[in-house]
Every structure is written in structure tokens, then in C-alpha cells.
Design a protein around this nucleic acid. Structure first.
Lengths: 210, 210, 210, 210
DNA sequence: TATGAATGAGTCTTCATTCAT
DNA sequence: AATGAATGAAGACTCATTCAT
């Protein structure tokens, strides 16, 4: 039991550290997120951080994993609510959108990790983990799309991917300030897209029925 | 004349340096693109770089400016070809897509510069330049969309922005390897989107005529 | 207690570093006093220095502050000894003289900091500190002069400033080796001046009495 | 003759360069006086400077030599004017004072060169040259003092050195801004000193006569 | 003589990381 | 588990100086 308690404590502090890291990251950006800053935010010394994470990259990885976990939860929660399939579809897409809109750093991090900026050492293991989580998260959306449009899994998948592309494109452009220049609101763009998508799905269903 | 020759030589070396910078940037990412690495790639000493660019940021700016310039040219060329409005519209969208698909670093840079990672000092001047170029580039697309769908400028603008979102989202996801995991081809996604867009525009036109 | 011990240790090493800095400064001049050289002299790596002083200028400031502190102490001690007002006056002037004669680098630093060579960033804060200390130190001298000569504060002040001019002039010329060329001993010059000053003050007193 | 003309031209440009150096030095301080800045001020490229001076230190040396030359001229001119010995004495001292007051950089340089800040390579040769010039310059003052006070050469020399100490001390303290803090005007201090000196010399003369 | 290109040593500073305590 | 001291490699940038032209 004592060992258990210790383990629990450890986990707890590890989480606290992660939380601090997120805050620093959000406040100072990826580059400004030094180990020292993170430690300080958590009330520790730089050295102490290494009791919990072997490497700075490991912290990034943990944040990212956390983020994806949260994303899955969010989708599950929001898309699980009662209502029609259509309502759940709308909810699922909106959930993803709002999630990243509210946590732009998570988007940055996700892109950062797999982009040219990639820090070495994150390696394929994390990559696989991320991918599986991503797929699981998307399955919800794909399922909803399939049901609303009575599409084959393949067609539903394609439509889902398209939606994801649009979604992330909107998020990125909004996050980089380009949308403002184009005098456009990301929320409206998303709603517009979802409306179009639903309409298309209904059409597909009608065509099929006919 | 000698002065002229010298100036030419200088420009040439400046370009060579930029080229080296692009390569380093492509190979090692933005963070790995140290002045030393760039200089070495170009066969110079670090100090020599400063004869051509006063600052590391200036190099980034130059690359970005270059990229935007090329983009404009590409669009102009590809979308100017004869053919129907529809053909030109397709050409314009494809041009943007192919451009960034072929030069993923340019996409990175464009996003990088205005993101959380943003280096200070590039500032509003470059921002404005980028914006104006972006808008000009988009005008081509918007014009084509308006003509094909006989849309009001406002409606055409909205449709254009949506297309851009989709376009960049696809590019980003492709560039970060996500699309592969989702078993999707970016080319197909783009074609699919364009087809849908054109169809929608034709519908709009018909509705209007009726 | 442990914290106390640590703090003490830290202070100690900080002082050791300062001491090293002074030596480097004395041996290689202000320009030669690079962070690396200082660190090396103290047996550290360059990076370690930054645990103790945030900036190179901070080291300069610390040395200067130290110096001024010592100067005040020296004057207080030497001019506080028993004896007549005259004796105390002589003691005070000699104290300043000997102080800087024994630590020529401190004179350099004091001049350096506020001269054309001035490093930026030391700024007004240190300036004010230096000034206040300077004035306090001089007050002792001015007081003695006033008492010996029964002068008004104003007259005493003027005489004090004159003495300071002479004092520092002698120190600078001695320090730069010019006095040797002129075949003169700084000690003798100071004594001579003090003698003259005292005589003048006595005269003033007599005149007043009469 | 052609060789002569060439030589003349060369000297001329060398002087122009020196002039530029002085200006840069005055404007940016000793540290800010880079070869590039000097060259630019003179309308040259950095490389060209090396056609005239083998080293940066050589430029410093040349400026200093120039300065001393000018000083000698100034004294000669101002102290040569008709009038009593006393008038010439006053004129000589004032000349030195005004000279350096008007060209604080020259004072800096003089101190710089022989102080802890000393750049290597200026060497004993220049030192000797400077010394001899200094002595010559002072001889004028010493002569005047001797005549006014009817002093032995030795006594006159001592008085001269004392005057020099006072003079330079005042200049240095004024230049470093200390005098302002002490609420004193350097001009007044000098006048005061000269008055005192002259009075003393008259006394000495009277004593001797009696 | 003058240029302009280039060098190379050096500057301060930052930071992830290690380790004795 | 945590500290605090220290390292060492790296980073951008500067500048006197050299040299082919």
C-alpha cells in the first residue's frame, strides 16, 4: 500500500509538472518553454524535472498524448449526447473544432512534432501511439457520417478525411491570423461546411432511397 | 560596367546563399538552420553570411518573399492559359496545391513565421507584404469562382476562403504525414474537392437562370 | 541551518568570483576582462558565472560597489582617529589618496564606468549610488575643512572640491606614469598640497579672529 | 617631382583619414570606433585604411601625436602673446585647460593609451615621443612660473607639476560628470586655482626681495 | 591605391543535462 | 525526491585583418 501511495504521489506530481509545462508552453510558445521555466512554474528546480521526465522531448510527448486523450474524451462526451445522428455528427465536428480553437498550443505541438521542426528522439513509438489515438478519435466522426448518409465505410471514410482537412485548414489559418486578413470568421466557416456536409449526406441518402 | 558585373556577382552569391539556406532548412528544419550550417552549405564562413544578410531573420524573410513571388508567378502562368472559366478555376487551385506540395518547406516557413514559434523582428512589414501577395493570389481564384458560379463578389469570396481552408488543411496534413495514416492521397482529395466545388457552382448558376 | 550554510557558501563563491574578476581586470585591463577569462581565473566555466551575476556589467557594478564601500570604510576609520581637527583632515585626505594609490584598478573602473568608454546598461542606478557614496565620503573631508578653517559651508565645499581635483589629478597622472617622467613623487605632491591647504586654513582662521 | 606630388597626396589623404577617425572617435567613443566606421566616415572602404595605417593602434597613436602637437601649438600661441609674465602664465594654464576641455576625447585617449586599458603594441617608442612632447609643452608653463615667482628651476618645476595635477584632475572629474554632482564649475575651479597660484608666486617674490 | 569578399578568432549569453549532496 | 552547482556545446553576431583583383 505504501508503494502504491508513493506511486500515486509520483503520478500526481508528474501531472502537476505537465500542467505547468502546458502553461509555460501556452504563455511563451514552444521555444520559450525552457526546462527551467517549467520547473519554476511547478515550484521545482530544473534538476527535479528529471526525476519525472528523462528529457525535454518526453515532456512534449506527454503533453501531446494528454492532448489527444482529452480530444477523444471531448468527442466522446459531446457526440454521445442524445439526439439524432445528424445532431451527433454536428456535435462531433464542432467538438474537434472547439477543442483546438480553445487550445491553439496543442495544435502547434501536433504540427510541430511531425513537421520540419521536429525534435529528434520522439521516434516511431510515439508516432504510432498518436496515430492510433487519432484514428480512434476519427472513428466517431466517420461512424456518424456513415449513419447519416447511409454511406459505405469507404465513402464515409473519404468524407471524414475531407472534413478533417477542412477542419484543420481552418484552424491553422485562423491560428496564423490569415483568416482575419481574409475577413472571415472561422466559426462561420465551420458551420457553413457542416451545413453543406449534412445537406450532401441527406442528398446521398435520398438518392439511395429512391 | 565593372560595377555592374560586381553587382551581378553579388546578387548571384546572395541567391546561392539563399539556396543553401533553403536546403539546410529543408534538411534540418527551421531550428537546425543555424547561420553556421547555412554558411557551410554555401561554402562560406559564418561571418561571410553577414555581408549578404544582416540577420538570420532577414534570411527567413528573403526565403519567404521568394516563395511568395514564385507562387504568384505560378498561379499567373497556370491560370492564365486559355480555356473556359472552369478550366482556369481548376488550374488555379491545382497550381496552389502543387506549388506547396512540391515545396513543403515553404509551407512550413509561411506558417512558422506567423505562429507561436515566430521569431521576433520579422514583424509587420513582411506580414503586410505576405498578406497583400496572398490577397492578390486569391483574387485570381475568387474571380474564376465568381464567373463560373455567377456569384456575387461576397459569395465568391466566401467560397474562395473555404477552398483555401481545405487546400491548406490538406497540405498540412499531407506534410505532417497524417494523411498517409488515414490511407488517403492528397491529390485525390483535392480533385474531389474541386469536382464538388465546380458542381456546386454549376448548380448555383442553373438555379439563378431558372 | 543548512540553508544558511548554503547561502554562506554561495556568497563566498560569489566573492571569490569577484576577486577573480578584479585580478583579471588588473592584469588584462577592462577590455581583456572577458567572462571566460574571469571564469577561468576562478576555476569555473563561462556558463557558471551566470549563476552568480546575470551580466558582465553586473560584475563591473559589483566591483565598483565594493570599491566604494571599502573607500567609505577606510575614510571612516582613518579620519575617525583621535587628535585635532587638523590631524583628522590630514588623515582623511591621505586615506583617499592611499586607497586609490593601492588599488589603481578601482580608479580606472570608476573613471571607465562613466566615461566615453562606458558600457551601456550600468545606467543611472549605479550612477546614483556612486554619487551618493562619493558625496558621503566627501562630507567627512568637507566637515574637517570647515572646522579647521572656520569656513562657511560654501567656502568649505569649494575648498573640498579643489582638494579632490588635485587628489584625483595626482592619482591619474601617477597611475598613467606621467609623474615619473616629470620626476615627481605623488606622495610628496600630496603632502605638499595638504601642507599648503592647512596653512591656508589657518590663515583664514586668523584673519577671521582678527 | 612626381614622387613628391604623390607623397604629398598620400600625406593629405592620411590626414583626412585621421580627421575622420577623430570624428568617429568623438561621436562613438573609443570602443565604437571601428575601422569600418572610420573608413566610411572618410569615404573609404575598410581595406583602404590599411594603405595608410598598418593597424588600428597606429591610428590611435597618430591621433594622440596630433593632439600633442596641437597642444604645443596652442600653448605657444596663447602664451606668446605680449603682456606681463603673469599674464602669459595665466594664458598658458588656461590654454591647456581649454584645449582639453574642448576635446575631451583627446584626454580620454591620452589616459586610455597608458592605462589598464592599454592596447598592446603602442610600445615604448610612442611613449617616449609623447613624453618629450609633454615635457616641452610644460616647459613653457614652468618658465612662466619661474619668472613670475623668481623661483629656482626646481621650485618652479614642483609648482608646475602641482598645477598640472590640479588641471588634469579638474578635467577628468569634469569629463566624467563628477563635478556636476558636486555642484561645481570647472572654469571657476581653474580660475580660482590660478588666482591662488599667482598670489603665492607674488608672495614668494616679495619674500625674496625683502 | 582602393575595393569588396572573406576569414577566424572572439564576444556574451542560453540551456539541457548531470551529479554530489 | 529535490537541490543547486556546474558543465559544455551551441547560438547569433562583430570586427580587425588579409588578399586577389
Amino acid at each position: 500500500m505504501t508503494a502504491n501511495r508513493r506511486e500515486t504521489n509520483r503520478k500526481f506530481r508528474q501531472e502537476a509538472l505537465l500542467s505547468a509545462a502546458k502553461q509555460v508552453f501556452a504563455a511563451h510558445g514552444l521555444e520559450g518553454a525552457t526546462i527551467r521555466a517549467i520547473a519554476q512554474e511547478a515550484g521545482y528546480t530544473a534538476g527535479a524535472v528529471y526525476s519525472y521526465y528523462p528529457t525535454k522531448e518526453a515532456i512534449y510527448a506527454a503533453i501531446l498524448a494528454h492532448s489527444l486523450h482529452d480530444l477523444r474524451d471531448t468527442i466522446a462526451t459531446e457526440a454521445a449526447g442524445g439526439g439524432s445522428d445528424e445532431a451527433r455528427l454536428r456535435a462531433a465536428i464542432r467538438a474537434v473544432y472547439r477543442f483546438y480553437r480553445a487550445r491553439p498550443q496543442d495544435l502547434d505541438l501536433g504540427l510541430y512534432v511531425f513537421q520540419g521542426l521536429r525534435p529528434r528522439g520522439l521516434g516511431p513509438e510515439l508516432d504510432r501511439q498518436l496515430n492510433s489515438r487519432l484514428i480512434v478519435a476519427l472513428q466517431k466522426v466517420a461512424g456518424a457520417i456513415a449513419r447519416v448518409g447511409r454511406l459505405t465505410p469507404l465513402a464515409a471514410h473519404r468524407e471524414t478525411v475531407a472534413a478533417i482537412c477542412y477542419l484543420f485548414g481552418t484552424l491553422v489559418l485562423a491560428g496564423t491570423g490569415r483568416l482575419k486578413i481574409l475577413d472571415s470568421e472561422p466559426d462561420a466557416l465551420i458551420e457553413h461546411y457542416v451545413d453543406g456536409l449534412v445537406a450532401r449526406l441527406h442528398d446521398a441518402r435520398s438518392a439511395q432511397t429512391a
